[in-house]
Design a binder for these strands. Structure first.
Length: 509
RNA sequence: GGGGCUGUAGCUCAGUGGUUAGAGCAGGGGACUCAUAAUCCCUCGGUCGUGGGUUCGAUCCCCACCGGCCCUACCA
């Protein structure tokens, strides 16, 4: 049996969950759902990143302990994912004991292997940010955030010998060209490595809210180095060798383009240093951008609306969970930047969901009701829709395999379009009840059954509802991908119509 | 400053060194009336960012420029 281990980044608790987080998480969820449907043993991990200075500061400012603070804020991410029907297998919090255990063992192994040394970090430090900046990041010597002069500070830290991995990383990318996709993103990572790697400071002395360095009790690991290790914590590194062997290194990290550096340079190097294989695959997606000021009039507040101001739960409340999932999956290919807009959601909703899919379900149910006694007739083995279905199934499977949910859905909607056209061509509503009507509607029902299976990863609730209306038994989520082959619709089951699945949104609202 | 990406129809995007550059949406016309005024068919629409170069021939390769974006060492 094939295995599929997929991760999202762990989100920093100080952020509110926003559409960007949702984009990544929904895509990971849909990919995981497809692999489960295909019968792969699947493990989908997401979680929250809860250490670091910013968290400690925010907690202090609010008069609570950092733990209380992170309890409260990580719960917001869980609530957002529950709302979006995200079926993760594990939710990791970096403040959990299991994580400290793995971080200490993993970084301990790197230390034992001689890739960590004590050095002093000298840099330009902004007292207000409590953070270091490079000279280039400063504006004429001043902190870009506070505008105050940065001062030169020196701190004794532990360093990771990243510079030792330049050649090894290049060699590895040469041997594993698909380790980072799409190609343009891999080129970016490789170009960065070619430009030369500096050792990096991986611990902090001035901070206590973090994972303690096992060989130096005065320091904690810097938040990024602890964060990346979460992918190993969840699969038992240092605690469960069998589980680790099951899932590593055949992992798929889904990340945004701004953290390529960490996932495609540091992370593989850290794995090499610890003596394990680097992650097999990192897939990099682009950003959702809010183009123009289109949103500002409908979103509360003045001025330009930032993507990070848009709460996923306000979108699902307005448009429904599955439509939001569909929009995120369908509108922007995983790898390029996309435009996010309410107009875009409404357009997808009305065109693809209400007019095409929802209306197809409604008209088929009505005609089966009026011309077939509300009971399913048999489909034909030589139906033209059989060819269309096979094409959609093949294309969708390849697309999901290739981290291209938008293409899988596009293929599915071609089948929906073909089914609508097929009905139009035969006009069964004009015919007298009989074998001819039965054949046409049997074909339409069978196409609809396959369509329902095809939308399972993207729209779990909608798939359940259509399945139920079609009179099919069991949970559609328990039906495997092999059932997408033509001819599986049972004869003689009752088809019911029901309310419109996606009532149109009027354009003036 | 350095590195990377991007600019194709009103909008969102595909695409290939070679006959008339594609899709969806939007626009226009027609058909139909089973269906959520949905659907189906036809159609309008692009000097493929600008200027050079390579080539028998470039939207596609090379160079420069212009515009947009990302990274430059803790933002999906």
């Amino acid at each position: 049996m094939a295995r599929f281990y997929i991760t999202t980044p762990i989100y920093y608790v100080n952020d509110a969950p926003h559409v960007g987080h949702a984009y990544c998480t929904v895509n990971a969820d849909a990919l995981a759902r497809w692999h489960r449907q295909r019968g792969d043993e699947t493990y989908f991990l997401t979680g929250t990143d809860e250490h670091g200075q910013k968290v400690a500061d925010a907690a202090a400012a609010n008069g609570v302990s950092p733990q209380e603070w992170t309890d409260r804020y990580s719960a917001r991410f869980r609530a957002a994912w529950d709302d979006l029907d995200i079926a993760y297998d594990d939710y990791i919090r970096t403040t959990e004991d299991r994580h400290a255990t793995t971080v200490q063992k993993f970084l301990g192994a790197i230390y034992d292997n001689g890739y960590i040394y004590k050095g002093s970090y000298r840099g330009l430090y902004c007292v207000s940010c409590e953070d270091y900046y490079t000279a280039e990041a400063l504006h004429e010597g001043n902190c870009p955030v506070h505008g105050r002069p940065a001062v030169e500070m020196e701190e004794e830290n532990w360093f990771f010998r990243l510079s030792a991995f330049e050649d090894k990383l290049l060699e590895w990318y040469g041997a594993h060209p698909q380790a980072t996709t799409p190609d343009t993103k891999r080129n970016e990572a490789v170009a960065f490595i070619r430009g030369g790697l500096r050792d990096i400071s991986i611990t902090r002395r001035s901070l206590t809210w973090g994972v303690r360095v096992p060989w130096d009790s005065d320091q904690v690991f810097y938040v990024w180095y602890d964060a990346l290790v979460n992918y190993l914590t969840a699969i038992g590194y240092g605690t469960d060798d069998a589980k680790l062997a099951t899932w590593w290194p055949s992992v798929h990290h889904l990340i945004g383009k701004e953290i390529i550096r960490f996932h495609c340079v540091w992370w593989p190097a850290m794995c090499m240093a610890a003596g394990i294989e680097p992650p097999q695959h990192v897939h990099v997606h682009g950003w959702l951008l809010v183009g123009g000021q289109k949103l500002s009039k409908t979103m509360a507040g003045e001025g330009a609306v930032r993507l990070t101001d848009i709460a996923p739960q306000s979108l699902t409340a307005e448009y429904g969970v599955d439509p939001v999932r569909y929009y995120l999956l369908r509108d922007t290919p995983l790898g390029t930047d996309g435009d996010f807009s309410l107009e875009g959601i409404i357009s997808r909703y009305n065109t693809d969901l209400a007019n095409n899919l929802g209306n197809l379900v409604a008209r088929v149910a009505t005609v089966v009701g009026s011309k077939c006694g509300g009971v399913s007739p048999a489909s034909r083995d030589d139906s033209p829709l059989r060819i269309e279905s096979a094409a959609a199934v093949t294309t969708a499977a390849a697309a999901w395999e290739d981290f291209a949910p938008h293409a899988a859905l596009e293929a599915t909607w071609r089948l929906i379009g073909a089914t609508n056209a097929y009905l139009e061509q035969h006009a069964p509503w004009k015919m007298e009840p009989g074998p001819e009507v039965a054949a046409v509607m049997g074909d339409a029902l069978e196409a609809l059954r396959i369509i329902t299976l095809l939308i399972v990863p993207a729209m779990p609730s909608t798939a359940r509802e259509i399945w139920r209306r079609l009179g099919l038994t069991g949970d559609v989520h328990d039906v495997g991908w092999e059932a997408t082959s033509w001819g599986g619709f049972p004869v003689g089951v009752s088809v019911t119509k029901g309310e419109p699945l996606f009532p149109r949104i009027s354009s003036d609202s």
